[in-house]
């Protein structure tokens, strides 16, 4: 009995994690891309990563919201922004002499990425978070198939017993 309860709890955990992973990875939406593909559609860099053409969405959003002109900002506010930027770009003890790039300073990020030998994507590092979510989806499909298979076998056996 204890074994059955443990397996039940484990299965429930796998199902919940699997559904969460499917939502997080936009699994169904991304699986259907090829069937919805339109050749005239422009594919931006962000399409692959966020399950939608987010650069286009961002452009649409920026059209709705006009950024205030930096020159029109009051002097005291402008000085504070400059001071903050200088502070952020300065090395601190935690970062061991490294400076954090300013927001929008993409060139330094790209250079870092290429230095790590990965064409700006990943590098010689291991971050298995996303892989864990894929594992959860994989386990979900395995488990669902397993239970459907068991259910079908059980029903067939019952039918055979009833016929006899």
């Amino acid at each position: 009995m204890a074994k059955k309860i443990t397996i039940g709890i484990l299965s429930l955990g796998i199902i919940i994690t699997g559904i969460m992973a499917m939502n997080r990875l936009r699994f169904i939406e991304r699986s259907m891309w090829i069937f919805k593909f339109n050749n005239e559609q422009t594919f931006n860099r962000g399409f692959d990563r966020h399950g939608g053409n987010f650069e286009r969405e961002r452009n649409e959003r920026s059209r709705e919201y006009e950024r205030p002109d930096f020159r029109n900002i009051h002097d005291s506010v402008r000085q504070r922004i400059f001071a903050e930027r200088e502070f952020r770009s300065a090395p601190d003890s935690l970062r061991e002499g490294r400076t954090r790039p300013l927001p929008g300073d993409r060139d330094s990020f790209r250079k870092d990425g290429f230095k790590r030998g990965s064409h700006g994507r990943g590098g010689n590092t291991v971050h298995l978070n996303t892989v864990g979510w894929f594992l959860a989806v994989f386990a979900l499909f395995t488990l669902v198939t397993l239970y459907i298979d068991k259910f079908i076998t059980y029903r067939r056996r019952n039918k055979t017993v009833l016929q006899e």
Partner: peptide
Amino acid sequence: LLLMDPRSFYGL
């Protein structure tokens, strides 16, 4: 599984 995300494991 490791191949599912090109950025996860030693890059592209």
